[in-house]
Amino acid sequence: MSFFSFRQMTNIDMLAPRKALLVAGADAHSLYYSQDVQKMAPETVDLVVVPGADHVDLYDRKDLIPFDKLDEFFTKNLA
Rank of each mutant, 00 (worst) to 15 (best):
T44P: 08
L58D: 04
D63N: 05
R61S: 11
P42Q: 00
Q8L: 13
A28W: 04
Y32G: 07
Y33K: 11
V23C: 00
D13E: 11
S2Q: 09
V23S: 06
D60M: 12
M1K: 11
F4A: 12
M9C: 08
D27T: 05
D46E: 07
D63L: 01
Q38E: 15
R7A: 08
R18K: 07
V23T: 05
H29S: 13
F4R: 10
T10V: 11
D54T: 12
E72W: 01
D36P: 04
D54A: 14
Q8H: 09
K76E: 15
D63V: 09
D27F: 12
A20S: 14
M1L: 05
N77D: 09
R61A: 12
D46H: 09
V50D: 03
N11L: 04
V45Q: 03
F73L: 03
L15D: 00
T44C: 12
N11K: 03
L78Y: 07
F6L: 11
D71M: 10
Q35V: 03
V49Y: 04
V48L: 08
S5A: 09
V45M: 05
L58Q: 01
H55T: 06
V23L: 09
I12A: 07
V50S: 00
S30D: 15
T44F: 03
A79I: 04
V49T: 14
V56I: 11
R7K: 15
A79R: 11
R7N: 10
Q38K: 06
F4W: 14
F73S: 01
D63C: 09
A53Q: 01
A53S: 14
D54S: 13
A16R: 06
S30R: 07
T44N: 10
D36E: 12
Q8W: 14
D36T: 14
K62P: 03
H29D: 14
M9Q: 08
F3N: 09
Y59N: 10
L21Q: 05
Y59Q: 12
V23Y: 01
M40K: 15
P51S: 05
L15W: 00
H55R: 06
A26C: 13
N11T: 01
D60K: 15
A28N: 05
N77L: 07
D60L: 13
F73R: 05
L70W: 15
M9W: 13
M1H: 09
H55C: 13
H55V: 05
S5R: 14
R7F: 04
L21P: 11
E43I: 03
F6P: 02
Y33I: 15
F3E: 13
D71W: 06
E72I: 02
Y59W: 14
Q38R: 05
P66N: 07
Q38D: 08
M9Y: 04
D46Q: 12
T10W: 02
S2Y: 09
F6D: 08
D27I: 04
K69Q: 06
D71H: 12
V50P: 00
D46C: 07
P51R: 10
D13H: 03
D46P: 02
N11H: 12
F3K: 14
F3M: 14
A16V: 01
T75L: 10
M14G: 00
F73T: 02
D27L: 15
A79L: 10
F4M: 15
D71E: 07
A24E: 00
F74S: 03
L70H: 06
D60P: 03
V50E: 00
L47K: 11
A79H: 15
K76V: 13
D27N: 12
P17I: 10
V37Y: 00
M9F: 07
R61E: 13
L58G: 04
A24I: 01
